[in-house]
Design a protein around this nucleic acid. Structure first.
Lengths: 215, 215
DNA sequence: GAATTAATTGAACGTTCGTTTTATTACTGC
DNA sequence: GCAGTAATAAAACGAACGTTCAATTAATTC
């Protein structure tokens, strides 16, 4: 046989991407074989090479688009003129929503960096660094304005990102907590972690621990 | 050739373990070949099978001993009768010290779970859960005593562990920050995150953000 | 110093891997 | 309906994989 009835390049490529994300997230990039991926799509292995020249190209494409998507999501949801506390809240909300919505893709982007060639690794890390830089910038602004109480901006940014991204490790939709509840709790923890004051103008007592961070 | 002069089973096994941890951490379990591991040790691939019956047995042994070591380290460093804040501080200190000291082994234990057979995965997860349970217990005690201000004990425990373990992703000995500085900052962040009061008896104003957590 | 045990080599086994090549069929534009 | 292109199958490639086996030598025991 050769071309099958109803075959469509666009649909097949989309199916390949989706199946690849799921298989790599579950078994790992090295453990997933091209034949296994092809079987999942319902196609022969050779057909995959019409869309991705090598296995690593496939991995790189998935990662790059995931990282770009993350950055674009933030740029669309960032408040333009808000104070650092509101900016931070928006960052946390975007980060959690994006990652919970794409648990498998996040797993791939975080776990399979070592399977990239050096220059492609550099490209992905550049995208990641640019995204993290946004958070550091918010933290610095807040610290300088006296709204946050932070020992080390870079270290705090890394701690926050690790904490937030970690949601995908244990969160399963439909279990004990809803996405809204999880996000609310993470917002509270974040604001306490950075020592945020609820009001940057008044110099009243700290009410951080009890505040509702619905900024 | 056959047995080489000066060969010693104990030494060879130790060398295999060490080389395996490093190679798996760097390239991943699937990507590391038994021949590559043997070459690193300075031995033929067949010799490895004297010490570990299969490749997965090797992985499982490394993981199990790492998790057991983590739990034992905590049991040796836990304060017997301290209040929850001090208990939490000791937990954080032990966790960070242990993980920074064994970055590669931690990477293996965190990243290669999917390469284990189902029942071995269960065994490792049981060890991990037992260790995490200790933290949840501390948080619950502190919350009930009114020392901590926590929305959800389980969620906070996961967030803290993800945050602390994340240290190994970016921390490199000898760079900008020392282990002591990192640990101190993480202690401060942890105490703020759980909304700890510096003194559980007095009901004075919160000074969390500015407190030196040298418990 | 002979017998036994411990440690390792070298070669081989069957399988699976990523990838390439060639041929064949379905679709599209005219 | 015919030419050209898009999409796939089928088969094969050499290389690498985890693992096994028999042979061989070093150390130990008595």
């Amino acid at each position: 046989m050769a071309r099958t009835t109803g075959s469509d390049g666009g649909r097949t490529e989309a199916a390949v991407r989706e199946a690849a994300v799921n298989l790599i997230a579950r078994y790992g990039y090295e453990a997933m074989s091209m034949r296994q991926l092809a079987a999942e799509v319902g196609v022969q292995a050779a057909a995959l090479y019409r869309y991705f020249p090598t296995k690593e190209d496939l991995l790189f494409t998935l990662m790059r688009e995931h990282m770009q998507g993350l950055h674009e999501a933030w740029e669309h949801s960032r408040p333009g003129d808000a104070d650092p506390a509101r900016q931070l809240a928006a960052y946390v909300r975007n980060h959690i929503a994006f990652h919970i919505g794409r648990r498998h893709a996040t797993h791939v982007s975080n776990m399979e960096l070592r399977s990239l060639s050096p220059d492609r690794l550099t490209q992905i890390l550049r995208l990641r660094t640019a995204y993290e830089k946004e958070l550091r910038s918010i933290l610095r602004d807040g610290a300088e304005a006296g709204i946050f109480n932070i020992e080390d901006t870079g270290l705090t940014a890394m701690a926050l990102i690790q904490m937030m991204t970690g949601v995908i490790v244990w969160f399963r939709p439909g279990e004990r907590l809803s996405i809204t509840e999880v996000t609310t709790t993470y917002l509270s923890m974040t604001m306490r972690l950075v020592g945020a004051k609820i009001d940057s103008i008044t110099t009243g007592p700290r009410v951080t621990s009890d505040a509702q961070w619905t900024l």
